[in-house]
Structure formats: C-alpha cells, structure tokens
Design a protein around this nucleic acid. Structure first.
Lengths: 273, 273
DNA sequence: ATGTGTGAAGTACTTCACAGCC
DNA sequence: GGCTGTGAAGTACTTCACACAT
C-alpha cells in the first residue's frame, strides 16, 4: 500500500476500482513476458498464475476495462498489452524528476524499469552544491535552485522524493507549487498536499515492520502459546515511562537499542539531500 | 501495498486486521516523534493528523490492541510506543540479510531506518566474486556461496532480495531452503514460496504506473471529455498485432518505445547480482 | 466537559458459480 | 467443451455516532 493522502474519495475514476488499477501493472508485466515469448493468447487461469492472483479476480478486473477476451479461447496477448498500457496512460511519455540524489536517488536514477514503461528521467535534483554537474546514470545533477525552472521547462507532472525526511515536506511544497501533481515519496514522512495532488509512498522500514509482526506470530504459534498468549492484558494503563525492556527472544546480536543516529528515530532516508 | 502471496487466508492473527497492522508502523513513527519532543499524551485526533489517517480509524485500530487510552484524556505516548513496538515484534532484534548489492542493495544497506527499528543488517550477499570482501555501509559483502551458512549461523529469518529479476526466484528458493520465512522483494517478479513464508514486495515501476493512471485522468478531466471519453469502446477485438500507436499527448521527448534494454521489459532492478 | 471504545451502518473488494458465446 | 463475463453472495475494511469512563 501506498497512497499517502488524496485517496480520491469516491474516486474510482470512470468506474475502475483502485484495487484493480494497482494490479494492472502486474498483469502488464506478465503479458509483456508472454509477448516476448510470442505467445498469442492466454486464458485467465494462465495469466492469473503468472501474475500471482486468482483467475476470478483477474477476469473481474478486465471486465472493468471492457470485454477484451474471447469466450472459449482467452485473451489476445498483444491486444491486452495495448489496452492495459493505454488505460494506465503508458502510451504516452511521462517525464519525471528525482529530488535527492543520495544512495537511493542514484539507485532510482539507474533503475531500468522506468524507461521501459514510458517514464523518462527528465532531471536529477539535489541540494548539495558539490553534486551539481556530476553525472549520475548519465544525467547531470542539478541544484535545487533550478527546481521550478526544470519542472516548467520540461512539463514534468510526476516527482520522486528521495530526500531525508526533514527536507521532504519542503521539497514537496516546491514541487507542487511548480506544477507537479503526482508524487512518489520515499522519505519516511507524511506529506501534506492540496487536493488534486496524488501521493504514493514507499517506506522500507514499514514493510520490514509488517514482516516482523507476522514473523513474531509464527514464532509464537510454533512454541505454542507462550506467556503473553491468552487474553492476559499486560501492565495496566499506568504508563511505564521511559523503559523499553531488553529484547526477549532472538539469537545473536548485542545492543538491541542500536545506535540512535539522528532525531525522529527514522532518520533520513539514506542519502544527503 | 505489497503482500506478494501468502495473504494468510483467514489470518487476522489473533484478531488484528492486516490493514491495521500495516498502519501500526505509521502510528509508531508519529508517536516516536512526539516522544522525542517529550509530549506526554495525545488525543486520537492529534495523533491521527500526525499519522495522516482519520481519528475513528485510529481508535478502532488501537481497540484491537486493547484499551490503552484514557477517556477524556487521550493516550499516554510512551506507553503506546511500547505497546505498539511489542505488538509489531520490535522489542526484539531482527537480523536481516540483503541479497544483491547493486545500487539499490547498497542504498538499503545504508538505510538508517533499519537499525532504528530493531532491524540489524547481519550480512550483505552478492553473486559477483569481485564484490566479495568489499565493505558497503561498513559491512563486508560475502559471496552467494556462503548464503546458507550465513543464514544458519546468524539465525536470520528475514531476507531482502534486491537482485535483478532473473535471479530473484532462485535466490528466494535458497533463502527459503536455508530457513528464511519472511522476504521483502524488490525485484520485479512474482515469487512463489511455500506456505508459511511471507513475501512483501516493493515495486518502483508499479507505483509510478499507478500515478500515471491518475495523472492521465486528471489531464482528461481538465480538457473535459476528450475523444475517447464517452462509453466509446476502441478498436474491436480483432487484435491489432504488434503496433503500438505513437504517443498522443505529452510534451517533449521522442521515442515512446524507449530503448528496450533486456528481456522482460522490466529488466533487472538496477544492479548486478 | 472531553475524548475513548465500540456496535451498527456503509463502502470496497473478493470469490463464487453459472449463463452465454465461441 | 472451454473459457469469458458478471450478477449475487461473502468478506474485509471504514466511517458514523454515541454510550460511558474520567
């Protein structure tokens, strides 16, 4: 998940559910692979397996786009690729800017999946004057001062924020003021944006935390109902101020209270600004 | 969003909805910030705003954890931080391995948000012999041959895959065979794993495609109902083989059929293996 | 007075199961 | 006979609105 704000209440733009939109890229990828192997048609069952979803869901998803299949046969691969691409807006070119060229920003700039889907990195922007002019992934980094001009000149409407958390909102505000209407945010912050601007976020630490939750559950089940299993509610609401108990289970590793390296606990994303 | 397979059907482990689990890290971050500012208590309204959700949802979420608030007052910040951390399993140390130390893998290794949440990078693994021994983020990269040993010796249960798409499933299989039960996948592929293994995926190109979809909608509304607006279904199901029409709108940029740089269209993630 | 905790109502998404077309 | 397209049923999540504890 990842929509920040702007859940576009009552959106379902022209009737396509958000959940379906989120899966279209998945189908597109599977179809592209089939297309490259020159497979002419697929059944919902085959395609669903390739995309990792169940076939009823896939058929329902496609039904929102129109009736692009043939009963008794399946779907024409090339035709579906085209229809989904069009629906996603990938038949047009989308210039994007990446702000914050640290480790992550550089990795994004080098990411091959962008170009192959109609996304073109129009510019790389960083606040560090020392970075200016340096080429990253073949594109020279420009200073933040140029931000507004770059966006306007290139007609950019999609921005990627890969700055430290502290700079994110400010960068976001400038992007929006300059005309950006879609933002992909990698900084661990909640961005606030005006209506009409879409924000999606990708947060590495959140994903790991969700995995840890399930991992913990597995460990608990395995060792069948350990102490805090039953409805036993721990210490009463008297608030045990400032005192994280030492890490219980888990092998190896010393200090669980690992080096606090900055405010916010979540600190920057990974790179300078 | 990001759960790959293993949606743990009928899971809701001990009653906490997946959607709630996915928001706990968000609350935790907001609470940590308050804690650092030494704020003693928060109301659901304030905390909800800070986390970017609505207050009714937040209260409902917390109600699954237990009654940790005080009516008429709000929630004790420190106490809630502790309860959520415990629920997420963050009071213990989680060693993780990152496989695939290219641009992205290196960025992940440098990511500060890991350590600050109880995640410890136990090892970096790459298939390139030339990388072996080189330190990245202060940790020496080890060769893939050592994978099984590393996992066993360190009791690692969470693995991060940042390899090119082509290597992902194979790496995944080895991780699982070695005992990993939770995987965070950055490679643009659907991983298949046995029951009991959780997979979450983060796919940069998918996020951008979703943004493009909405962006396209905005452009359409703005220029009020353009040609393909009304229920007009485009070319009939006769399948226009191999012929992506040239990009319609959008300023600047030439070739929409951008440099195909590898199979699968989505190609590697961004780094060697 | 204030703000939590929660049944109940509402909405969104998923899955079933089968009619209809090839 | 095989496979799509889709109403209908089921499930999950969200939001409302208010009783109740402090």
């Amino acid at each position: 998940m990842a929509t920040g704000r702007t859940h576009r209440p009552a959106t379902r733009s022209r009737g396509i559910p958000e959940a379906t939109v989120a899966r279209l890229p998945l189908y597109l990828r599977a179809l592209t692979a089939l297309s490259e192997r020159s497979v002419p048609t697929v059944s919902s069952e085959e395609l669903a397996t390739a995309a990792g979803v169940n076939s009823a869901k896939l058929r329902k998803d496609f039904s929102y786009l129109g009736s692009y299949g043939t009963r008794g046969v399946g779907y024409d691969v090339e035709y579906l690729v085209y229809q989904i691409s069009r629906e996603l807006g990938l038949t047009q070119d989308w210039p994007v800017v990446i702000v914050g060229i640290g480790n992550l920003g550089a990795a994004l700039a080098n990411y091959g999946g962008f170009a192959s889907r109609g996304f073109r990195v129009a510019a790389l922007i960083d606040a560090d004057p020392a970075m200016a002019g340096k080429p990253v992934a073949g594109i020279p980094v420009q200073h933040t001062d140029e931000l507004e001009k770059i966006i306007t000149d290139n007609g950019v409407s999609i921005g990627v924020i890969a700055t430290p958390a502290g700079a994110a909102q400010q960068v976001c505000d400038r992007l929006v003021a300059a005309g950006i209407t879609s933002i992909l945010n990698f900084a661990p912050t909640v961005l606030s944006v005006p209506d009409g601007v879409d924000v999606r976020k990708v947060d590495l630490s959140i994903e790991l935390q969700i995995l840890a939750f399930h991992e913990q559950r597995k460990a608990g089940e395995e060792a069948s109902a350990p102490e805090e299993a039953a409805g036993a509610v721990p210490p009463p609401p008297v608030a045990p101020h400032r005192a994280r108990p030492g890490a219980p289970g888990a092998p190896g590793a010393p200090g669980a209270d690992s080096g606090r390296q900055g405010p916010d606990g979540d600190v920057p994303a990974v790179m300078p600004a």
